[in-house]
Design a protein around this nucleic acid. Structure first.
Lengths: 228, 228
DNA sequence: GCAACATGTGTACACTGTGAACTTCATACA
DNA sequence: TGTATGAAGTTCACAGTGTACACATGTTGC
């Protein structure tokens, strides 16, 4: 059948829940992504979500995954063709675009950014807090019964892959020496992610976005110069 | 009288709540800092906390403030006297120590680090979510415009002040040019905070701490080289 | 047509933060 | 020496949360 919801069964509830999760987090961040809130919005009972997600965290992880895809897509748009014929300058431009694209996404979609990187942390269940100290042996990852589900693998996330590509391109173009290549992703990722973090819930929060992007350009420039 | 709790009144409940908050967040992060959990641990009713804090966020903010003090203290310990007589090298060493001290704190006290920078975000109340029409009966507004509540001033936080000091020292020592000084704090803060973030809930989470500190040294070196 | 199965509903429970009214105690003042 | 006052802690209540369990409903293979 089509994706209508004219009857008892919904059609594609999983898709609808994720879509509504995207809408909620876009405007109000990860704390708006309650299990009851999402199901209420879709017009379905709260427990219906458990047919498609092991728990709330799994829903958040699924939404976060789609946000990371959107982020990578916007970053790719950011990497337009470079007018410069010099491959050295092209490689540098590409790396710059990766960094600025990352930050641009965080600035223009703070709710999504927050959800992608801190969403699952926000929705943790409590653990009784009994007085004797426990070592918290949690780590129950719900075994990922479904196909997708890559909740915490930032290092496999599409934006990270773009960064790695750009850095490899730097080496290929001869702008970055091979022995300084390993570890460079952590410097770049740290600077760019840290800056986004400062914008989203740090001291740069209420600054004008043009001022923010000026500072962002400085940060990106500095870290590219720093990895050498 | 002393700080005993032998009678109906507690003595210094505010202090005890913060101390217990520090203990809880140290081992289990900001999500363990529930209002009921803290008061239960102290042995007092839940609403007793409201005599000392406007709400849960205020408690978290108070705990976060004390953590930032501890962080700055550990960073200051990290800045030991430099054997080098060269003031240029001293200034650089100082900046390096600020960065590595910051990261070291995050690595050795992840629960505290998370609480200091993300604690208040974790405990936000929801707002009904029905963007349709609201027929909520009269809602008495608490109108708490009265007392301040400034929980988010990272840029006035002690660790940030240490960074600014170190950068000014770089200029004074002639290692950093005056016209590249403005904005340099954002580059450094971004790189260091971003790296700490990757360690605390990013892809570097379960790496050995010696390996983490090796990578940290690289990041700090890169960003110092980058600001020029 | 009917069993098996997947999907959505209803009820219930243990939690949470917080408001309002009540109780206890320490202290200033007659 | 009382006694009013007010700060500090208690109890009760309420709305809201995630989720476990039993049940209802619709789809699909035989």
């Amino acid at each position: 059948m089509g994706s209508g919801r004219n009857s008892y069964h919904h059609g594609d509830l999983r898709r609808s829940l994720i879509d509504e999760g995207l809408a909620l987090t876009r405007s109000r961040g990860p704390r708006a992504l309650g299990l009851r809130a999402v199901t209420r919005q879709v017009g379905v009972s709260a427990n219906a979500a458990y047919r498609h997600f092991a728990n709330q965290q799994a829903l958040v992880a699924a939404v976060a995954g789609e946000i990371l895809e959107k982020m990578a897509a916007q970053m790719r748009e950011f990497i337009t063709a470079d007018p410069s014929p010099d491959p050295r300058e092209q490689a540098r431009h590409r790396l710059r675009a990766v960094g600025l694209g990352y930050i641009t996404f965080a600035v223009s979609e703070p709710g999504w950014f927050e959800t992608a990187f801190f969403g699952t942390e926000m929705s943790d269940r409590q653990s009784t807090g009994s007085d004797d100290h426990d070592e918290t042996p949690e780590r129950h990852e719900t075994a990922s019964d479904d196909h997708d589900e890559a909740p915490e693998h930032y290092d496999e996330a599409p934006p990270f892959a773009l960064l790695v590509e750009a850095l490899d391109g730097m080496v290929a173009a001869g702008v970055l020496s091979a022995e300084r290549r390993p570890g460079a992703e952590w410097s770049c990722w740290s600077a760019v992610h840290g800056f986004a973090e400062l914008v989203v819930h740090g001291p740069l929060r209420q600054r004008e976005s043009v001022e923010v992007m000026t500072l962002a350009a400085r940060v990106v420039e500095d870290i590219i110069a720093g990895i050498r």
